[in-house]
Amino acid sequence: MSAVAAPRVPDADAVRDILRGVVDPEIPTVSIVDLGMVERIEVGPERIEVELLPTFVGCPAQELIRGAVVDALASFGRQAIVGFSFRRPWTSDRITAAGRERLAASGFAPPAEPADVRCPYCTSARVAMDSVFGPTQCRSLFYCRACRQPFEAFKLV
């Protein structure tokens, strides 16, 4: 988890910094902030509200992530109200540039049209989709003909 110490008077930036230590257990190298899941942060005198957007409607990690956010906010010593909403659809273009770099560095192709997917290992375009569906709802399976590596690509949603 994060080593950032909570300030005495929290503000939205401080909350966001703490949330940089929270990850989706299915994508452990990118924080929920870099994934673009944090939609709204409101800091009041008695409580902190955080609204999250699920990457997929049926993402089974939602409850785990919600719990991790509540735990991360505990250091502020205020009531934390954390929930998921569909107020705006989470789309793959909400992933930050830093998030995309970290995905590629961990062997995941960032979201793109299937025809535009590049190998995260050798950047070759000579790739083929093996299966639309991968090990989690958010990823497809690809194979790189250039470096002969299988890899996973994030779906474009």
């Binding site: 997929f56 409607v57 049926g58 993402c59 989690t136 709802q137 399976l141």
Partner: peptide, 20 residues
């Protein structure tokens, strides 16, 4: 095998939609 994964993933999506 790919269809084992695909049908499980599709089913998970549909059940997620049902839940919502």
């Amino acid at each position: 095998l790919e269809e084992d994964v695909a049908m499980s993933s599709l089913a998970q999506d549909e059940l997620g939609h049902a839940r919502a």
